[in-house]
Design a binder for these strands. Structure first.
Length: 608
RNA sequence: CGGGGCGUGGCGCAGCUUGGUAGCGCGGGUGCUUUGGGAGCACUAGGUCGCAGGUUCGAAUCCUGUCGCCCCGACCA
């Protein structure tokens, strides 16, 4: 390809719409253009990058025996209703674009394809003899993100590779999951990305085990907590850790564990309370009053007890509430704090906000119009383990000191609800501390189990001749996000430094002065011989000044530059490597033998 | 949705406080000179200042509404 024919439009200034380096560079270098919020056009250079990434993905997926397919993006609501996800994905903060067709039938634009693929599996998979199978596709996904961001990082339309596997038993699922894990590591390495695998929450997709692949980068949206040797790494929403040991409350339980009231006028926060009375936050139990809203329009008040120095992990809480209530009430749509206004509009007497204790009585809910009349009571284990503590007295301007579970009130169900923090001791090795780093999630693999196959009645006949639900896994890679993540990891002050394996072109031949016949004809000759050698080569045949061409070549990030300049008369050219800036002069006749071996190695990406 | 910010030639911005009919840099076109790190000079085209109302003799500027975009939180490949 010739640069003069490439519709290359580069920008000198950073675009105002972008903040992070990769987003700025992709726009400046003429790779993408925004069409609407979170919706981008992939210009010819970008499309070549995406095709190269896709090729790596295909090769590795095909290598595991997976089958490429293409599923509809327009999907009937019915399938989503059967899996129980329609309401969660369309109501409230749901992310599915949805519409009605001319007959009034509801449809959704696919944000993911578990429903469709399971529907097909139900139709096609009948016997254990057909299993396991793993189907994948590379196509655009649609998600009405609450906040699109950072160009291709979080778009509302983006390219994803999604795969779904079906198995006769859990062991087979684990094997495919493991082979996807290693395929993913090869894919990211081949694309030149430094990526790490971290434990993850399964989120709305559901299922049991799940692992995310993170490209480490400052601009990453996710917080990773990892031990210093990286033997443990997890997304913060999933991470577990050991909380600091509590300091025992002097005096232990008082008033037979009921706690002694003391006046705490206006001290409605942990900080105020502790500062006013010489108490440590870890000696207190704070009680969060929340409301969970469900698909069936029911609402469940929650009373969550946490040790005062700990923070709630909302993902863990959401999972806990879902596990306890979704069977009866459908999808959990939202959890939010209950405030004064909500209490009043529900026709209830005021709650003692700021002075709430875990013994708050269900009687407060008796007059409720819509809410469940009993609190769902949960406690983080750090709170449950306190032998005596300070907590709200459930009346204004008063707390209790020396309260104990059992005497004050029964200890609520105890589970892990706290957010792990950087600096916490690791569970697997208390001598190590968790450290924070940021990451861009480029892949996610799940063991789904039988959630979808049961909902959509995807069954097969096993060896014993009886029917059972298929075991499923699903495996995603954000292809367009991966491409931008590569820029985030590979750029410098002059522009992008693409890894050879996913660069739109591998080599650019730059004639310093196209008007000089010696330079232009030697350039043409090298261009042809590189093409014949199977190299993806770009020829800058523009009659721009050399400086402009060098700047553009650096900006768009072609890994190798061959400069045909003053030495052309003597048959000499200059070979420049973009990433290292290393330069060497050599006879044009030796270019191929100098370049091809390096290219052959670089095309394979990082060594795994 | 809550909080913050921004919409002015293709791109990046100034002008707005204190209303008087739009300017700078880059980019585009033509010509001459230049030619290895975003050239110089000259000429030139291109904007009803997001949109709709209102105030005013007069609005890019003041007021109201509305739309769009970006940033911080929940969502996720």
């Amino acid at each position: 390809m010739r640069v003069s024919r490439l519709m290359l439009v580069t920008l000198r200034d950073d675009p105002s719409e972008a903040d992070i380096p990769s987003h700025k560079l992709l726009i400046r270098a003429g790779y993408i253009r925004r069409v609407a919020s979170g919706i981008y056009a992939y210009l010819p250079l970008m499309w070549r990058v995406l095709q190269k990434v896709s090729r790596v993905v295909r090769e590795e997926m095909d290598g595991t025996g997976a089958l490429e397919t293409l599923l509809p993006q327009l999907q009937p609501a019915e399938l989503w209703q059967r899996s129980g996800r329609w309401a969660g994905y369309t109501a409230g903060e749901g992310i599915m674009f949805h519409l009605e067709d001319r007959q009034g039938r509801e449809m959704g634009l696919g944000p993911t394809h578990e429903e469709v693929i399971t529907y097909l599996a139900a139709d096609l998979l009948r016997s254990y003899r057909q299993l396991p199978v793993n189907l994948y596709q590379i196509q655009s996904k649609f998600r009405d993100e609450i906040r699109p961001r950072f160009g291709l990082m979080r778009g509302r339309e983006f390219i994803m590779k999604d795969a779904y596997s079906f198995h006769a038993n859990e062991e087979s699922l684990r094997q495919t999951y493991a082979s996807m894990d290693s395929a993913y590591r090869r894919i990211f390495a081949r694309c030149g990305l430094r990526a790490v695998a971290v434990e993850a929450d399964s989120g709305a997709i559901g299922g049991s085990a799940s692992q995310e692949f993170m490209v480490t980068a400052e601009a990453g949206e996710d917080l990773i907590l990892a031990s210093s040797d990286w033997s443990y790494a997890a997304n913060q929403e999933r991470a577990v850790s050991l909380a600091a040991e509590p300091i025992a409350l002097p005096g232990g339980p008082r008033a037979r564990g009921q706690g002694e009231p003391f006046a705490t006028p206006g001290q409605s926060t942990i900080d105020d309370l502790c500062a006013g009375h010489g108490i440590e936050p870890c000696q207190t139990v704070k009680v969060l009053v929340l409301l969970a809203c469900f698909e069936d329009e029911s609402a469940q008040p929650l009373l969550v007890s946490l040790r005062g120095d700990q923070q709630l992990n909302e993902v863990k809480l959401t999972n806990a509430v879902t596990a306890r209530c979704s069977e009866e009430h459908g999808a959990l749509l939202d959890i939010s704090p209950i405030d004064k206004e909500a209490v009043a509009s529900e026709g209830l007497l005021p709650f003692p906000f700021g002075f709430t204790g875990p013994h708050l009585d269900d009687g407060l809910l008796a007059g409720s119009d819509h809410w469940n009349k009993r609190f769902l009571r949960l406690a983080d284990s750090t709170a449950a383990e306190l032998s005596s503590f300070v907590c709200g007295a459930n009346s204004l301007d008063s707390h209790l000191i020396g309260a104990a579970w059992g005497s004050l009130c029964p200890c609520p169900e105890s589970l892990d609800l706290r957010a792990a923090q950087p600096g916490d001791r690791c569970q697997h090795d208390p001598s190590q501390q968790l450290q924070a780093s940021r990451g861009i999630e480029v892949g996610h693999i799940f063991q789904l189990g039988r959630k979808y196959s049961e909902a959509l009645e995807a069954r097969f006949t096993n060896e014993a001749g009886t029917e059972e639900a298929l075991w499923m896994g699903c495996y995603g890679i954000g292809v367009s996000r991966l491409a931008q993540a590569a820029v985030e990891q590979h750029h410098d002050g002059n522009g992008i430094c693409w890894p050879v394996s996913i660069a739109p072109f591998e080599v650019i031949v730059v004639a310093a002065n196209w008007a000089e016949t010696e330079q232009s004809s030697l350039s043409e000759q090298l261009y042809r011989s590189l093409q014949e050698a199977g190299v993806d080569v770009l020829l800058d045949d523009r009659s721009e000044r050399a400086g402009v061409k060098f700047k553009d070549a650096d900006l768009i990030g072609i890994p190798w530059r061959v400069v045909v300049g003053r030495g052309a008369a003597d048959g000499m050219v200059e070979l420049v490597e973009r990433s290292s800036c290393s330069k060497r002069d050599l006879p044009a006749t030796e270019l191929l033998e100098a370049l091809l071996p390096s290219l052959a190695i670089q095309r394979m990406g990082l060594s795994v």
